[in-house]
Design a binder for these strands. Sequence first.
DNA 1: TATTAGCACTCGTTAAGGCAGAGTGCTAAT
DNA 2: ATTAGCACTCTGCCTTAACGAGTGCTAATA
Lengths: 342, 342
Amino acid sequence: MTGLSERKQRILRAVVTDYIQTAEPVGSRTISRRHNMNLSAATIRNEMADLEELGYLAQPHTSAGRIPSQRGYRLYVDCLMDTVEPSPEENEYLKRVFLQLEKMREIDQLVQYTVKVLAQMTNYISMVLGPQFRSSVFRQLQIIPLDDEQALVVLLTDNGYVRNKAIELPKALSREELARVVKCLNEQLAGQAIEELTFSRLHKLCTGLYARIDLVDQLLLLLDEVSQENSARVFLGGTANILKQPEFRDVERFGHLLTLFEQDEALGVLLEPLQRGLSVRIGTENHLQEVSECSLVTATYTMCDRPLGTFGVLGPTRMDYGRVLVIMQRIMEKINTLALGL
Amino acid sequence: MTGLSERKQRILRAVVTDYIQTAEPVGSRTISRRHNMNLSAATIRNEMADLEELGYLAQPHTSAGRIPSQRGYRLYVDCLMDTVEPSPEENEYLKRVFLQLEKMREIDQLVQYTVKVLAQMTNYISMVLGPQFRSSVFRQLQIIPLDDEQALVVLLTDNGYVRNKAIELPKALSREELARVVKCLNEQLAGQAIEELTFSRLHKLCTGLYARIDLVDQLLLLLDEVSQENSARVFLGGTANILKQPEFRDVERFGHLLTLFEQDEALGVLLEPLQRGLSVRIGTENHLQEVSECSLVTATYTMCDRPLGTFGVLGPTRMDYGRVLVIMQRIMEKINTLALGL
DNA sequence: TATTAGCACTCGTTAAGGCAGAGTGCTAAT
DNA sequence: ATTAGCACTCTGCCTTAACGAGTGCTAATA
């Protein structure tokens, strides 16, 4: 499976867990003492030299201890890591969180609460990608007249996302006509994927409405605009947490991260899930310069088994993977059982 | 006016402008060279010693130059500062910004764009307090049925803010009844200040609706909830900018700021305007530990002459007040002339 | 043959000392 | 009232030295 002897695996695991805890390069002596493996420091030294040659460990400089390489972390996450349980306090906290979550009626509320909880529990940076308009299905559209000239369009999708937009009303438009247009649009569009509502496609659907072409065109343009929108709605929490990590004492590196955090599109790409459920991306696996020294654990959340979005926890590659994974697992499972009001 | 001799004023101004530019304590020699005031370093030294005694300057340590004290900045901002014009490039940029602003149809869009622009132009942190629900006036309420059990309430205020909320519908409720309730509420509440919509007060207003008390109660609770809400909607931009400032090279201090930025309520209080128009709060004038080394320039923005919210620029006390003030002035004036769609 | 003790060597960290530069306050001269 | 001159102070930076942690290699051991 791993191609490594049992002993090498045990040593690699020891290095990784120690380094995760201390953030200091770990030496052979430390391992032979702390983890009672009945081997002398010298033996461990030899094994560590091998592990370095194999690319699982690295040495910041001669005569320092070893730190895990990206490849080392990867092996650790995939094969070596013990699955952990949340601590009693964490379980207590989770219980309270679940109670709160059950009370939530709206997706935005839920997402924002989750961001906060994740940041607090993990002590890393949490990020949530909210439900995206693009990947949802048209449900209903309503127009609320404000005065003779303007109206508010309310657009609802099946995943509980609501979008408001102001439009101008054509001068001579009776309430009845307006209602007729809305009704027709609702009938035509029900169940359509938002993503596919391009202007030209919409136009074909609405042949029956040429009488009110002025209004319809505005609405269709709005829908088109919305369907094109790829502004990822990303929420962040706990950005200050990462300053506690020694690897981010360096102002430079942190600055790059902060700049990244203001670019919603980039964050959207970063969080784009590869698969359903949990996944761990380590260092350069994220394909983003700014987080090449970070790891990102993501989890997808669903509603009624339809994928809605992703949440993620971002920390240094020296992140406590076991703890983060189990916490996210629990929260994801809980959220997936919820059926929100909308 | 200031109680200082003309010469002292000139010297104080020189110290402040120099320090703003260089972030280094400025010495007597520098001043007598750079600002040609035909005085020897020794004379200036004497004056500076006086200014220190008067509390306008401070010395980080013996044998260092002087830096302005909070009181020094205050005098500078109030009396000594030259009013500056935006540079040609800034004017160019502003022109483009104004064009963008004129296209905006929704307040949220406008607010978010302004945050970005302010951060970019000033190179400090920008923060905008969006229109607050509390301080607006009820305009209209609509209910959009989703299915037999649920509906979406859309609440509109006069300042263009829209709020959606899901509610549960009582089982046996015809469309006509629903429409009647909505109509009645709209009539009763039109023009009421949101802030004053307490539950008990609402109840008295709606005596005509006891027939559908179940539904009405839900709506009233919603309104009540909304009116209580003081979650300031704060938008931030340019947080990474401040890392460029030498006074925030210290990770500790920056961490405190970041933590503050995650507390929306605190930010809301911070931005709470003292008066219409521009104002400058220096250091501890902000009454917030975390920003006791920062200055905050705020400007209120209005629509149709009604105050909507505040925007602010936060930087070190060593901020370029003149430049920030003129930029905010221009942007504020522009926004105040806009009449958004809604 | 695998393991281990011993040892020389490397490198980063820390503390101490010394020097240069900037700036001050004071005094005496203008 | 202003200024030149001078002694003094403090910081920042550089150098040096000592220390400690850790390694790789070699030779001894089970």
